[in-house]
């Protein structure tokens, strides 16, 4: 019987590492030069967060952060499917960044009250960085939502796809009952999901994007987009964009069951480390 705290820490660390890995793909090729710099720092922050969680997991397992982050078989990774998806375009990237960082905020706020002191203490530094991530995610969400129709469309498409798999971030962990009973996890994943959904629903509704919550990239009765030109969107075939909802809520990652996209991540992420066992870099 493994310590359920290890599963918790690996889920936390793997989410951060895999998303940081995906985010880092933008470094050098982001759609705006200044944003390239900003988003690279966010990628680095997420990878840095993974190191914090792996270090804590290392105190329970005796393994170093590289062995945990780069040395497990694919089915050993506990990240949500959402974070392993390719970046697609900037619309999806912003949408996923937003969904994830709201989730991370809910998660860190929860864990700050953990009765397992080392875990509660670790959240402090991460929450400080998280403030910038939230600022960044919300500002981009807001800008694209108000942007020309094209930008709003890309954002809406991205949100539909990301929201469909965001529940995977709150998939119950193995041994979760024990974690909750011991006060290690002060709030069950399902309750954290509710908190997250409340925040996301309120914020997207305020931007006139409530239709993406139902899996539709377009408003059912046409929408007035508050751009300077006051364009009106034609929503003739809006329902066709709703495709992505059917993927089962992006569940399975916490049990080590991943999407077809994970193979590529795993190969890139762990390939060099695995090819030269036991050396220093």
């Amino acid at each position: 019987m493994t310590d359920p705290r290890v599963d918790l820490l690996l889920a936390l660390g793997d989410d951060e590492l895999v998303l940081g890995h995906r985010h880092a793909h933008w470094t050098g090729v982001a759609p705006h030069l200044e944003e390239d710099l900003a988003f690279s720092s966010i990628a680095q922050d997420e990878i840095g967060h993974a190191v914090v969680w792996y270090r804590l997991a290392g105190e329970l397992t005796g393994k170093d952060p590289d062995a945990l982050g780069l040395g497990r078989p694919p089915e050993g990774y506990r990240n949500a499917i959402l974070v392993e998806r390719p970046n697609r375009d900037w619309g999806y990237t912003v949408a996923r960044h937003y969904c994830y960082d709201i989730a991370e905020d809910v998660r860190l706020t929860t864990l700050a009250d953990s009765l397992w002191t080392p875990l509660a203490e670790a959240t402090g530094a991460l929450r400080r960085e998280e403030r910038y991530h939230l600022l960044h995610a919300r500002l981009w969400l807001d800008r694209l939502a108000h942007g020309p129709l094209d930008a709003r469309g890309h954002l809406a498409d991205g949100l539909v796809a990301a929201l469909a798999e965001a529940p995977g971030l709150f998939e119950p962990l193995p041994g979760e009952d024990e974690l909750v009973a011991d006060g290690v996890l002060p709030l069950a994943s399902a309750d954290q999901h509710t908190r997250w959904r409340d925040v996301v629903t309120a914020e997207l509704t305020a931007l006139g994007l409530e239709h993406v919550l139902d899996g539709s990239a377009h408003h059912s009765d046409g929408e007035f987009v508050p751009t300077s030109s006051g364009e009106l969107l034609d929503t003739g075939d809006g329902a066709a964009a709703a495709g992505a909802v059917a993927s089962g809520g992006g569940l399975g990652g916490r049990l080590g069951r991943h999407s077809e996209d994970f193979a590529e991540v795993w190969e890139e992420l762990t390939g060099t480390y695995r090819a030269y066992p036991g050396v220093r870099w």
Binding site: L17, H21, A24, H25, T27, S40, A43, Q44, I47, G48, A50, V51, Y54, P65, D66, G69, L70, E268, L269, G271, T272, Y273, Y276, W281
Partner: peptide
Amino acid sequence: IARAPSLRRKLSLT
């Protein structure tokens, strides 16, 4: 960056 051999190198190269 994607293939860096350690987490520290992944960070420093990024």
